[in-house]
Nucleic acid binder design. Structure first.
Lengths: 221, 221, 221, 221
DNA sequence: CTTTAACCGAGACGGTACGTCGTGTCTTAAC
DNA sequence: GTTAAGACACGACGTACCGTCTCGGTTAAAG
């Protein structure tokens, strides 16, 4: 599992507000946060997010520009920069809605079943345009450690945790091999998906998805 | 193995001359190519490559610019664009020298030994600044299929082939599991390395390298 | 004298409250104006004016911004815009206090004496930072006829009237030349002062002031 | 005359090339100036100057923006910033062509005649849109000493010199008063013109021009 | 020894996007 | 109804690189 100390640096230091529950305004992190001034316009936020998502449908992350988003959303550039640190930060937010990225843990009859369910959920998310966007986003986040961390936090952390927990449970129950390195196995599974996504201009095919699940099960047992 | 048809598109379509043998002049693509005019300046080529490598030591791939390389190398921008298609193409060339990227197949006493040797060689290459640069390059190549293919061709193809061949041999000889999906296993191994490199600002640690080799062997068996 | 019809357009059309008596509250334009709601905060007004004047001490009119004034004064931008039309309007008000711009006519033993007294008063005002500010304000008011008129009204009108009246009296009494074009003479005198102020980054020097008075007297004779 | 030491700071330090002879490329200030690289595009320069002048016909100096000029001229913003330090520098160049600002000294039968001819020439230049532009430019140059100096250098210096020389000659020959302060007289004349231009939204009228010449002659005699 | 043709350095060109600043307007809750 | 706070749409700023182009000037093989 790629999660390590260096990546857990304080994401909240960003001036991206806490949006863990996918709510637009974020939790009342500090209850005593005296609010003054004109409140943030929910309309603006929505049109920005919408414009971003619409643009991502027919152009790459690289090609999307803050300027174009602002224009399309009928919004001042300043308004975008007020709430997001940069393009990647914005797209991260924009796509985390439609891709419902922080799901509840899956429920399966046994570890093996849970594992397959979780894999299928993640792979479904990565099919088609969605997978390409995530991969491009991942790539775009390189070079800025803060964005790297933000991407991981928003897109991978929860998935990794769920998968790790499933594998651990399987090991405990005797469904999976006891000598398995849980963290590394998680890395190998998600790693192979991104490696595939990033190595080809084609979207993820069903074929790969099936092979991956089957091979993984063989490895785990 | 992420190699698939769509990625094998004609790399030579690029106006990058053939440099597969790592020679600077390569060419002679067409033996009957009447050559006249001033020959390419070896001095310029070297200073460009040197400048690029020096810049990569203390800045990210993203931060390097053709303009800065030209200035530092004391060379016209035109000269760079004449020989390389763009920044990624240039850096690809620049780092493939120091990283001796197209090695001969490893020789081991048995499949297991060969596998470990090959893994160690690749992981050594990915240690320190080198690994980060490769990962950044990989990321930077996203969005342009041609560059994606070029990166794969230059950096991964041969490594994948070697590893695949080792695994196949191991399967044939009975050293490794017969039901192993060779291509997928290769993907999982290299995928986990890139996933690790790209998920953390830290360079690859020895710890991860050791774990990966050990876990891989367990999987292969 | 530059005063002409086009410049006398209704200054009161501005939503700057009447401040001709230099009182801060002025108003009571209509005695029977039923006043309700929170009264204007004198404290705010003062801190705005103070902040403006303090900023003008170490930066040019151009560099002062409403935003910065609001921040420095601890006041909402709205409050400034409610009472002044824009930056020039504000600074006009701010500096007309310290520069006591609407003085009583001077009293001299004869026309010549009055003239010298009036000139000295005006030139003293233009010495040092003050003169530069007035010139910058004058410059800043260009392009917006309303501001041009406002500047003239606040800064020049009364001075022009006084000087014109002195010259006229001198002509009537035979102290000055009868064929003098009063208006033009006033223009030439004030014009030369502004020309000087605007042509050099240096403040007005005593030397120029003395020469101007002497030369003017020679012309009037 | 407002010319003083502080204003003579090295205008050539600007990266505005020498254009004293109104030629586009400037004199070969340093004959040994090794020229390399692509030469400046005369076509671009012309379209920039043209676009600027066209825009000034129907909008104020304040309203003209580098961005709009670039667009209208079909030119990159960079190209403008490469050759002119800012908007005022550009407009200064643009209007100094059409206004033929650095004329040969006038030739008159006597000092008085020369004086009238020179005044008429300057006043003709200031009539209509031209005068307003010069005044706005003068105003816009306030706040940046370098621009102040540049404006003076480009627009006033030569005119001041010519007028001063005429007056001096007149004094020498006994046509004008011997006790006249030449520099101050020049200031008063040009000052009154700018004062007039800047105090009213109207262009300079013939009436004022006539009065000024007549009154000036009275003063000089 | 000249021609020819591709090379080279320098750097200007048209563009695109950046991230920042200031404008004048607006929308809250608090007073 | 005013106030402080501050979000908003807008427009311009000046900068950084992109990849292309156009110069004058090499450099060597071919004629």
């Amino acid at each position: 599992m790629a999660l390590n100390a260096s990546r857990q640096i304080h994401i909240e230091d960003q001036d991206v507000q806490d949006q863990t529950e996918n709510s637009s305004q974020g939790s009342i992190t500090e209850a005593s946060q005296k609010i003054t001034g004109r409140p943030r316009s929910e309309k603006s936020r929505n049109s920005i997010i919408d414009a971003t998502n619409k643009m991502l449908l027919h152009m790459s992350v690289r090609e999307v520009s803050i300027e174009a988003v602002a224009k399309k959303a009928g919004v001042g550039k300043t308004t975008i920069y007020r709430w997001w640190p940069n393009k990647v930060g914005l797209i991260l937010d924009a796509v985390s809605g439609p891709m419902s990225v922080l799901p509840a843990p899956v429920e399966g009859v046994d570890a093996k079943d849970s594992f397959v369910k979780q894999m299928e959920r993640f792979l479904r998310m990565c099919r088609g345009r969605g997978g390409k966007i995530v991969a491009e986003l991942y790539a775009e986040a390189q070079g800025d450690p803060t964005l790297q961390a933000l991407f991981f936090e928003k897109f991978m952390l929860h998935h990794e945790e769920i998968l790790a927990s499933i594998i651990q449970t399987g090991k405990d129950r005797g469904d999976f091999r006891k000598d398995l390195d849980t963290a590394l196995t998680v890395d190998m599974i998600y790693g192979s998906i991104f490696y595939h996504l990033m190595s080809s201009p084609e979207p993820l095919d069903q074929n790969f998805a099936n092979s991956l699940i089957m091979e993984s099960l063989r490895i785990l047992k």
